[in-house]
């Protein structure tokens, strides 16, 4: 049996999930210019909201997903409103902002563990085997198909909003230069709040998809944010289009890597890639050399 088509399919699914985190991470990074750990824990919030509403309370699946996305978005918005906006006013360095984001990450992760225990949970009923499809010898479930389609739609939608709308122009202006945007009359705090909300929604969705695909645990966020950050660096940090490509490249390297090595070493493969890029091409594949 040829396993290559299956590995390609797995890479596309993993890449779709990473691309959502990367889009969110890059949007926020572009506007605030510091490595933010909070998106990782927002992914966990998204996953756990769906777990609570759908798996425990028995709400409608799509309603639960919508709620998960929205709640992740709200938490992202609050992180900006309560912490990062103040730090911007204080002219805090990017390392101070990073440590604050690490604090929020640590705190929320612990609270999730207290509420839902630190056990691994699955959102979907594992006793029911889902409908599967086959293309070119690769097998995938309908949920995995949905993950891929959603990621592509989200990317195209975001690219269109950034390109065509006034809001998108404002976002790009803030990402270019926050000070100048303020001077020409853009309400930068409001735009950045929206960026946090939208970016966090995307990250929340990725967390929900991770929950569908493999399951959730309170500590899931660390791998997700590192995957997002690595994909961003591969693609060129802050670059939306590069990040999308980077996420798929990252997923392909990771999934093809485990043909030769056992799958527990996935993180090791992934972060070797991060270190290689940090050393040899820190500006990524899409950004110009500084």
């Amino acid at each position: 049996m040829d396993i290559i088509p299956q590995i390609i399919a797995n890479s596309l699914i993993a890449g779709s999930i990473y691309s959502l985190v990367t889009l969110g991470f890059n949007l926020v990074y572009g506007a605030t210019r510091f490595v933010n750990m909070v998106p990782g824990v927002l992914a966990a919030i998204g996953g756990y909201t769906v777990y609570y509403l759908f798996s425990q309370l028995g709400f409608n699946l799509y309603l639960s997903i919508a709620a998960g996305i929205f709640i992740a978005g709200i938490f992202g918005y609050l992180s900006d409103r309560l912490v990062f906006r103040k730090l911007r006013r204080n002219k805090a360095s990017n390392l101070v902002s990073f440590v604050a984001s690490l604090g929020i990450f640590t705190m929320i992760q612990a609270v999730i563990s207290i509420l839902f225990t630190s056990q691994f949970q699955s959102i979907l009923d594992v006793t029911q085997s889902p409908t599967t499809y086959q293309i070119f010898g690769a097998t995938f479930t309908w949920i995995q198909g949905m993950i891929f389609v959603t990621a592509v739609v989200a990317f195209i939608g975001l690219a269109l909003v950034l390109k065509k709308t006034g809001f998108g122009r404002a976002v790009r202006a803030v990402s270019d230069d926050e000070e100048v945007s303020k001077i020409i009359g853009i309400n930068t705090d409001k735009i950045i709040s929206w960026i946090f909300f939208i970016g966090s929604c995307l990250v929340g969705l990725s967390g929900i998809f991770v929950g569908f695909d493999v399951g959730i645990s309170p500590t899931m966020g660390l791998f997700i944010i590192l995957a997002g950050a690595t994909s961003s660096i591969i693609g060129g940090i802050g670059n939306i289009y590069g990040g999308f490509l980077g996420a798929f490249l990252f997923a392909f390297v990771e999934n093809f890597g485990i043909i030769k090595i056992s799958s527990e070493w996935k993180p090791a493969i992934a972060f070797s890639l991060l270190v290689l890029f940090l050393i040899f091409r820190p500006e990524g594949i899409m950004n110009k050399k500084k």
Partner: peptide
């Protein structure tokens, strides 16, 4: 153990907001 983790997470946030140099620090990040 989890509450301890939540508390030092919160502590980091509060320190960064109001006293990034820590209690008796000589340098801010």
């Amino acid at each position: 153990a989890q509450t301890r983790q939540a508390l030092y997470g919160l502590l980091l946030v509060v320190l960064m907001l109001y006293r990034p140099q820590g209690l008796i620090g000589e340098y801010k990040l």
